[in-house]
Design a protein around this nucleic acid. Structure first.
Length: 855
RNA sequence: GCUUGAGUGGUGAAAUUGGCAAACACGCUAGACUUAGGAUCUAGUGCCGAAAGGUUUAAGGGUUCGAGUCCCUUCUCAAGCACCA
């Protein structure tokens, strides 16, 4: 207790924050006697800027929910951790030469301290950190499981390379073909990359979405991202030994094909282009290659293309169909070739118009429709398929094509495999060593080698300078594979990853196939040992966040990534709150890993996040997104200093609906601060003692009704995450308290309990001053008693022709006929009734009477 | 361009299944208490009108006894997707 008559929020808040920490108030253990409630926040990246107002919005929301559920008797788990790998720490390291872990630790300490200062009820015993080797050993372990099961492979993929900066950049760091930092040109450079086969889970990821209690927009976004489309592959013969395969979702339009278009990168171009067209084709391909992705995908531009000089044969009509090259066809979708049906596809239509290609209508048009007609209809000019409805025709034509062995029903996904490696220092090292083929063969021949623990059925290999290298996975005993010290965190011009700057004793190793021992290579490899080079890419930041929620369940468990006992009790989060910007990144990746671990039998559920909620973005006071360049970033620390943490929490929750994006406006902090001061004044007298007013033995009936209405409304509002309306109801209740000469101590307690999730510090303080020994967090949530809310007198509104004209007060148990009779006598209504003819009476129980009168 | 949301006072916003629009706050106006007020309290505050009253949820239309809420058209804003064959 703080001995003061003033609302000294600084002293009060510091006191109760220390109390909660000391008593481990929010520490959760498995307790089979209680129902569990696991609340998950998207854990933050601990940036140097510290906690921003958006973090506080989400974390306050989960804190309110957690404190409320605890009062409801749930065993609440509300953990927190740090998604601490990432680029800013690395850039800081490059600039200062200090190891990124130093700055990371500093930032984490700051974040933790700030969370402490806003009074979050977090179980700090379970804090995790993705950069902690004891954490990322399991990230590496899960990667090895993926590797073992054939879901991790290597591929040559183009990445953004900036010669001036000497580094590879992420897509987000490239703006209009220039580096975001320094504005230097960047180029596409193919590099060997690790890729996770997320497409193998395309169907499962898609199907699982329907079972999720997520915002519809987010579900839609994931579905769209996965982009499943059913259709068929159709082979067109070009030459006796060459066929061109196209993918189409509209096989029913096949009689309308008037050209075939293939992507400029298509592999068959060289073998089909005619001698006369060769020059034009080459020029076109060069032109396209020089275009940026932005220019190529600009929808506003006209379609361009060039004829190859070759023709394909229509599988049904035998017609010769010209083959064109055009950059509106994308190599990475389907087969990189499409059948052009101008009459029934907008893009093909545009292309055909530009190059004067025939437009053959093969589907009837609905009235007032013009070409291109992309809707459904009935087939015409389609040989024996004419007369079929398009939906039926799709099946019929595909099965005929299959019968002719020139087609196949198939499913395409927009989803691509996940590029999983980064040319960075500050990430999880891959637990992989590359060896030559003969050494790999040697390992395979070695019985019971520990290195076979994660060895895949099909070897993962790539070829460099004519030499094939094979991936050998480390064993679980070698984990964690920690980051080596490097002389520089910056990649040199010659190499592409900072880890290539590591000492040779880390980079070059020899492995004992039978014992599993790994030592620095010394140039001399004895019998039983094989030599190799470590993988020098690191994993992307998403890796650690793919499974972090599971680690909270048993953060110090060393035998497995999660303790089955804890998993059995806590299962998956009951509520996940975090930003919508992760709709298709983190939320998709994490589902992939979770489903994979589920398929291995390691998890009891197939989906990680049953219920998801996105808080809206808090904008700057000018209505723009907060950003350094606009200078509209709000520092929450100054608000805490001036008004206190309770005021900041209330303010952010009172700002508007949680899911809405809303501008910050400091003026309104005054409103909630006044509310808190008013609470204080009602409870504490001028001498600093508890106000006599709050210690009565009974309440007025009117106040009892208000109090129970408040219990109901606050409870429902919290359940529905509508904290702004909960707070307004608390304000109404306080205004009611203010008008009462005295209220019962019990009611005073109830009010504090309802306030406690929102403004926990002041609630604890006043609770203690009321004479309570235990923390308010131990008190059971107040019960709503509907009988306290019944009124003996009801107000009924009287309308004439839908307009309110009067109101009457009637006994709560009056009959409808009595009420209607009373309504007819209402002074303002009489005039209308006498002027016209009453044709209808409507009575809405306990609410209103409406008379329909013809005047 | 497509998809999905959303548009309510000077401001942030409330409003069960269609049933008193603007709760709760901010701001503003007047008053009280004060040496003082950026403290506190009281009253008022959508718009027009002196009042009676009329009128009001982006605009227009419709359904209904009754529409912020349902349907149609248009406009504006936001988010996502963006040649995915």
């Amino acid at each position: 207790m703080i001995k003061t008559a003033e609302y000294d929020f600084k002293a009060i808040e510091a006191h109760w924050q220390a109390f909660w920490a000391e008593h481990k108030t929010f520490h959760a253990e498995i307790d089979e006697s209680k129902k569990k409630y696991w609340i998950l926040d998207m854990f933050p990246y601990p940036s140097g800027a510290g906690l921003h107002v958006g973090h506080i919005e989400g974390y306050t929301a989960t804190d309110i929910l957690g404190r409320y559920k605890k009062a409801q008797g749930f065993n609440v788990l509300h953990p927190m951790g740090w998604d601490a790998f990432g680029l800013p720490a690395e850039q800081h390291a490059i600039a200062t030469g200090l190891h990124p872990s130093i700055n990371t630790k500093k930032n984490i300490d700051n974040f933790r301290q700030q969370m402490h200062r806003i009074g979050l009820g977090i179980d700090w015993e379970r804090e995790i950190n993705t950069t902690d080797p004891e954490y990322f050993r399991w990230t590496q372990w899960i990667f090895l499981q993926l590797f073992k099961h054939g879901l991790a492979y290597v591929d040559q993929k183009p990445v953004w390379w900036c010669p001036q900066l000497g580094t590879v950049l992420a897509n987000e760091e490239v703006v209009d073909g220039k580096s975001e930092r320094g504005n230097y040109p960047v180029e596409r450079k193919p590099l060997r990359q690790w890729v996770l086969k997320i497409t193998a889970y395309g169907d499962k990821l898609l199907k699982g979405i329907d079972s999720l209690d997520w915002p519809e927009a987010t579900k839609r976004q994931q579905k769209q991202w996965i982009g499943r489309s059913e259709g068929g592959l159709v082979s067109f013969e070009v030459k006796p030994d060459i066929t061109l395969e196209v993918f189409t979702t509209r096989p029913d339009t096949i009689f309308g094909v008037s050209f075939i278009a293939i992507a400029p990168e298509h592999g068959l171009i060289d073998s089909i282009v005619s001698v006369e067209q060769k020059h034009l084709v080459e020029d076109y391909r060069k032109q396209v290659a020089a275009k940026s992705d932005l220019e190529r995908t600009d929808l506003a531009k006209n379609k361009t293309g060039v004829f190859t000089g070759s023709y394909a044969v229509h599988p049904f009509t035998g017609e010769r169909i010209p083959i064109w090259i055009s950059d509106y066809v994308l190599m990475h979708h389907g087969t990189g070739a499409v059948m052009g049906v101008p009459a029934h596809d907008e893009r093909d239509f545009e292309f055909a118009q530009t190059y004067h290609l025939p437009i053959k209508q093969v589907i009837t048009l609905s009235s007032n429709e013009t070409l291109p007609a992309v809707g459904e209809g009935v087939l015409v000019n389609s040989g024996k398929f004419s007369g079929l409805a398009t939906l039926d025709a799709r099946k019929a034509i595909l099965s005929e094509l299959e019968h002719l062995k020139v087609g196949k029903t198939t499913v395409q996904y927009k989803l691509h495999d996940w590029l999983f490696s980064r040319q960075r220092y500050w990430g999880e090292p891959f637990p992989i060593v590359w060896v030559e083929e003969k050494d790999y063969q040697y390992l395979l021949a070695c019985d019971h080698s520990p290195f076979k623990e994660f060895l895949p059925k099909t070897p993962i290999a790539y070829t460099e300078n004519g030499k094939s290298l094979f991936a050998v996975p480390l064993t679980s005993k070698h984990l964690p594979l920690t980051l080596p010290e490097v002389s520089s965190y910056k990649p040199t011009m010659g190499s592409t990853t900072p880890l290539q700057n590591a000492d040779s004793s880390w980079l070059n190793v020899k492995m004992n196939c039978s014992t599993g021992e790994i030592l620095p290579a010394d140039g001399f490899v004895e019998e039983g040992w094989i030599a190799g080079v470590r993988e020098t890419n690191t994993m992307p930041q998403w890796a650690g966040s793919c499974w972090y929620y599971l680690r909270y369940l048993s953060p110090h468990f060393s035998n497995n990534f999660v303790d089955d006992k804890a998993l059995h009790y806590w299962e998956t989060p009951d509520m996940y709150i975090g930003g919508a910007e992760h709709a298709v990144l983190h939320l998709l990746y994490a589902r992939f890993w979770h489903q994979f671990l589920f398929d291995l039998g390691l998890l009891p559920t197939s989906e990680p996040f049953k219920k998801l909620f996105h808080p809206g973005i808090i904008l700057g006071p000018d209505g723009n997104k907060m950003s350094k360049s606009l200078g509209n970033v709000i520092n929450p620390n100054s608000v805490i200093d001036e008004y206190g943490a309770d005021a900041l929490r209330l303010y952010e929750m009172f700002l508007g609906p949680l899911e809405a994006s809303k501008p910050w406006s400091l003026q309104n902090v005054e409103g909630v601060y006044r509310f808190l001061k008013k609470v204080w004044r009602e409870f504490v007298d001028l001498e600093g003692e508890i106000a006599k007013k709050m210690l009565g033995s009974c309440d007025s009936a009117e106040f009892q009704r208000l109090l129970h209405e408040t219990i109901l409304k606050v409870t429902e509002a919290i359940e529905n995450l509508r904290f702004n309306t909960a707070i307004s109801q608390l304000m109404i209740c306080l205004n009611g308290i203010q008008k009462e000469p005295q209220i019962s101590k019990n009611s005073a307690k109830v009010f504090l309990q309802l306030l406690a999730p929102f403004a926990p510090h002041i609630a604890e303080e006043l609770w203690e001053r009321l004479g309570e020994k235990a923390s308010i967090t131990e008190a059971a949530w107040p019960n709503f008693d509907a009988s306290k809310c019944v009124r003996s007198q009801l107000k009924v509104v009287v309308q004439v022709n839908g307009k309110v004209r009067d109101e009457i007060y009637v006994s709560a148990n009056a009959e409808p006929s009595e009420i209607i009779a009373a309504a007819k006598k209402a002074s303002k209504v009489v005039a209308y009734l006498s002027k016209g003819t009453l044709v209808k009476e409507i009575y809405v129980p306990k609410k209103l009477v409406n008379f329909v009168v013809i005047l």
